[in-house]
Design a protein around this nucleic acid. Structure first.
Lengths: 202, 202
DNA sequence: GGCATTAATCTAACATTGTTAGATTAACGT
DNA sequence: ACGTTAATCTAACAATGTTAGATTAATGCC
């Protein structure tokens, strides 16, 4: 009998609705506006119902973060597979990263602790795996670019951090209003240029 | 009669106490623990008293941010004046920036919207002046380093953004736990190395 | 010195947050 | 048809930022 299956499907659908509602509110009004009662209103259920599907608001946001990381990783892999040339691959992946940030600012905020969200404390294992995967993708492509002498594991890891920091830094400063938004479109180009300079030096 | 002066002094002292309490709580327990009642408890006054000195919690945090920016700018100027050699100056300023971040993580968080604080919305003029001043300091030293051909105002501004983004990115990724804290000490060295490579390319 | 005025502070409360307890209703298995 | 289980709701809790109104203390004036 498929009753259990249907129930599972319904539970899954409800989770989906809750997650989507949270994301939608965040997209339109920012994460500060994402409250349990507001989500409940959107999905047309009472607030406590949400706790039948997530143990806490924190857990809900962690789930959103996991899904967001999934999307980002997908985009990065797509960009990687779009061209076989190593340098072009790196450019493409960086462009995809940048595109993701500004296509889904609210998702980028929740996975990187921007915009006043901060889902896992630093030191928590929470999203460590996903962070590692992003780094891994850049590590792989860098390995095919750098001269063999500079390909020790630590060397690659260091260089990935530099690249990631550069673009995340741009994003964070822009989103925090510390750099004016007019600079946004320029930033990708600047970053790519700097990246090229760095790769040449490595 | 010095009664008005004394009152002003007392008001100032009270503001000081409130600001220090907020900062101290944040330093020990993070900004999420900084609540009006908690501050009131520390200064041994009732919660509403705080509203006689600050119109809102937000305003209080903005004031903390202003002071924090003041400290950072002071450190940066000190580092600038520590040596006359342009390249060494840049290195020194970057080192001072990095030192400030990890000496007062809570202050850096509040001025850069990390750690779940977010004092001014992006697009707000709130801390725009201070951000500009930080950029200005780096702009000045860069101007003495770059070859004359690459010294247009826009060029300098762009390069400052690259430098700032690099180091802020490191900090943000570390503080968000996206990069493991073991990499912290390495990061300054890595950043300095990358900065050297970039300056050479410019 | 006595008294009105003004400033500083407090108690009590409000609305909004996340979250839980307990009742109620609907669906299911036997 | 009925007991059991799952899903949902109403009502409430504690903690947040914030405000109103009373109270107390200090000041200026005669």
């Amino acid at each position: 009998m498929g009753v259990k299956e249907r129930r599972d499907r319904e539970r899954l659908g409800m989770r989906r609705a809750i997650l989507d509602a949270a994301r939608e509110i965040a997209a339109h009004e920012g994460w500060h506006a994402v409250t349990i009662r507001r989500i409940a209103e959107v999905i047309e259920y009472s607030p406590p119902t949400i706790y039948e599907y997530f143990p806490s608001k924190e857990a809900l946001l962690v789930e959103v973060s996991h899904e967001a990381f999934g999307l980002l990783l997908g985009d990065l892999r797509g960009a990687r597979d779009a061209t076989p040339d190593p340098r072009e691959r790196l450019r493409s992946m960086v462009a995809a990263y940048w595109a993701f940030v500004w296509k889904h600012p609210e998702l980028y905020q929740v996975i990187s602790g921007l915009g006043g969200v901060n889902v896992c404390e630093p030191g928590d294992e929470c999203l460590h795996t996903e962070g590692t995967q992003v780094a891994e993708l850049f590590r792989e492509v860098l390995q095919t670019i750098l001269p063999p002498a500079n390909r020790t594991a630590e060397d690659l890891e260091n260089k990935v951090m530099v690249i990631w920091s550069l673009f995340h830094g741009f994003t964070a400063l822009l989103m925090a209003g510390r750099i004016p938004m007019e600079a946004r479109d320029r930033a990708l180009e600047l970053g790519q240029q700097a990246l090229g300079d760095l790769v040449s030096a490595w």
